[in-house]
C-alpha cells in the first residue's frame, strides 16, 4: 500500500491520471481560467499588439503619453521596439544579471530548504521545530521592510561592518551590489520553499526510511535514494515558483542592487516611468514573461518525462 502511495506522489502534476478525458474536469477548470483570460490575458494581448506598433484603439492611451513610440509599418506591425531593446547597451547586462540571480538564488534556496527539511525529518527534536518556525518569519514581513532591513544590515554603516570593525576587520559593503540582490531574494523566497519541501518530506512514510535503514543504507544514501525522489514534486514546485518569483522581482533589486546593471523588473519600471518609453518597457515585460513561461514548461516537461520513464504513460 505504501509503495502505491509514493508512486502517486512521485508522479506529480505532469502525468495524466485517468485514461479517459473528462468533460466535468474541463468545466471545473473553467472559472479561474476565464477570470485570468479576461482580466490578465486580454490586457496582455492588448499590450502585445502595442509592442508590435498597433497604436490605435485600446493602445491610444499609451501612445498619447509615451516617447519613442514606433507605429506599425506592415500589416502585422513592426519589430522596431524589440530592436530598440535588444540594441540598448543596458539590456545584455540586465538580462545576464537577471538570469544569474535567478539561477544562483533558486539553487541556494532549494539547498537551504532541503537542509532544513531533512534535518527536521531525520533528526527532529525541539531545535528543528523552532528553526522551521523561524525560517517562516520572512513570509510575514512585507517585501519593502525586508529590503530595508537587509539594506541597513549590510550597508556602509550597518551591523556587519560595525561589528567587524571592532576587531579591526574591514567587512565589505554588500548593499548596492549584485550580491545584495541575491541575499535579498534568498531571504524573501526561503519560507515558501521551506513550506513546500518540508511538507513533501514529512509525507514520506516512516516505513520506507526504516526499510532502507534496515537494508544498511547510510544517511546520505537515504537522502539521495529515498527522501529526494519521493518529495520531488513539491521540491520542483518550490523551485519553479521561486525562480519565477525572483525573475520578476522589483523591490529587492531596486533597494539592494547597484544602479547598473540591474534586474529587468527595475529596468521595466525605469523605462515605463523615468524614461517614459512604455513600448520598450512592454517589450522587456514580454521577455520576462517568456522566460517565466520557459521555466514553467521545463517543469511540466520534466514531470512528463519522469512519468514516461517509469512507464506510467
Amino acid at each position: 500500500m505504501t509503495s502505491t502511495k509514493t508512486d502517486v506522489v512521485a508522479e506529480g502534476l505532469g502525468a495524466a491520471k485517468a485514461p479517459r478525458l473528462s468533460v466535468v474536469g474541463f468545466l471545473m477548470a473553467l472559472p479561474p481560467l476565464l477570470l485570468v483570460l479576461f482580466f490578465v490575458g486580454l490586457p496582455v494581448l492588448i499590450a502585445f499588439t502595442f509592442s508590435l506598433g498597433f497604436t490605435t484603439g485600446p493602445n491610444r492611451v499609451l501612445s498619447m503619453i509615451g516617447q519613442e513610440i514606433h507605429k506599425k509599418d506592415q500589416w502585422w506591425g513592426t519589430f522596431s521596439a524589440y530592436k530598440d531593446v535588444i540594441h540598448d547597451p543596458r539590456f545584455a547586462g540586465d538580462m545576464r544579471t537577471t538570469l544569474a540571480i535567478t539561477f544562483i538564488s533558486t539553487t541556494l534556496v532549494l539547498l537551504m530548504a532541503l537542509g532544513i527539511g531533512i534535518y527536521q525529518r531525520m533528526i527532529g527534536g525541539r531545535l528543528a521545530s523552532v528553526m522551521t518556525a523561524l525560517t517562516l518569519v520572512p513570509l510575514f514581513v512585507p517585501v519593502v521592510i525586508a529590503a530595508w532591513a537587509i539594506h541597513t544590515f549590510y550597508a556602509g554603516d550597518g551591523f556587519m561592518r560595525s561589528f567587524f570593525s571592532q576587531f579591526g576587520i574591514e567587512f565589505p559593503t554588500v548593499t548596492s551590489t549584485v550580491s545584495a540582490i541575491a541575499i535579498g531574494t534568498i531571504w524573501t523566497s526561503l519560507p515558501f520553499a521551506i513550506l513546500m519541501v518540508t511538507s513533501g518530506l514529512q509525507s514520506i512514510p516512516d516505513a520506507l526510511i526504516e526499510t532502507a535503514q534496515d537494508a544498511g543504507a547510510g544517511f546520505i544514501r537515504i537522502i539521495r535514494t529515498v527522501l529526494i525522489p519521493l518529495a520531488i514534486t513539491p521540491i520542483v514546485i518550490a523551485g519553479t515558483f521561486t525562480a519565477i518569483g525572483i525573475l520578476g522581482s522589483f523591490t529587492i533589486p531596486l533597494f539592494l542592487g547597484p544602479n547598473q546593471p540591474t534586474m529587468l523588473g527595475v529596468e521595466i519600471s525605469n523605462f515605463f516611468g523615468a524614461y517614459n518609453r512604455p513600448q520598450q518597457s512592454i517589450v522587456m515585460a514580454f521577455i520576462v514573461f517568456a522566460s517565466a513561461s520557459g521555466i514553467a514548461l521545463i517543469y511540466i516537461w520534466a514531470n512528463v518525462r519522469s512519468a514516461k520513464q517509469s512507464g506510467r504513460i
Binding site: P89, R90, P258, N259, Q260, P261, N270, A274, Y275, R277
Partner: peptide
C-alpha cells in the same frame, strides 16, 4: 527623460 536614460547608460557602475 532622455538625459535620465543617457546618465544610466554612461555613468553608474
Amino acid at each position: 527623460n532622455d538625459l535620465k536614460s543617457a546618465w544610466a547608460l554612461a555613468v553608474p557602475g
